[in-house]
Amino acid sequence: MVALFWFTIRQCLRGRRLWLVALLLAGPCSLALLLRNFEPPGGVVETWEAYHSAMLSLMFMAVLPLLCMLYGSALIGSEVEARTLVYLVTRRMRRATVLLVRFTATALVLVALFGVAVLAFHLCAVVGLDVKALNTAGGLSSGQAWQPWSDLLGYFGALPLGVVAFLAVFTLVSLLTSRSLTISTMYIVIVEIVLSSLPVGAQVYTITNQLRRSLATFISRDLLWLVEVPVTLQEELYPVGATGTIPLVMVVLAVMTSCCVLVSRRELAPAKSVRE
């Protein structure tokens, strides 16, 4: 198990994939620099809005799902495709153990990579910014002062939740279909970007919504007015005091249980190669 764990970590940090990840993560940092360059007019509210809009829309709604899709689809799928899974499932480990070890290792790598990206984005957006002066000129709508470093901690808190939730969903997709990337992309666009932005009750079935709930608890409920949800719906979609942590953990447990059952029941061999 330990060998498989380290092997998976090394695989996750392999050259080509890491290049793609670096490019993906460079995008939000470039945006942060752009925003710094073209400073939003006004005071702390506008700067706060720019920071959180970019973090929520770009980092948590686009880059994070894409990263999880890349790694989740490769967790078992790429081994099946390359037929190397045969070496892992013909050892004395149970298939479910193989899956869980690989999932844990991949999730840890993703948390680390995405954590670095969030930190880099934060540094690009905040370092050199006179937050104190901005706060003196006027506070946030709730009357509180903006504390970017404390917000960063909030994002760090939500990060592992987002990683395991997205990774679990995309792992399940990769076990259910051989066209996992197409279906996962459709899922990201239709469910996590479009549906989670629509002011409808079905929004609660998205991971993004649950993450926002957690962030609203970890950081501030002020974040909710960035989502542009009508006030009438706000209580339904984001009830006060309700975090998305428990629902997300439940979802991860349910999805991973399904994954373990699937991986144990299915042969996971590329059919053509074993027909002889």
């Binding site: 995008g27 809005e49 970019a54 770009l58 894409l66 990201i188």
Partner: peptide, 14 residues
Amino acid sequence: LLPVMAQAVLFKVL
């Protein structure tokens, strides 16, 4: 996808 999302943020805050 990413440029579309980035553009949305830019239009929103600038």
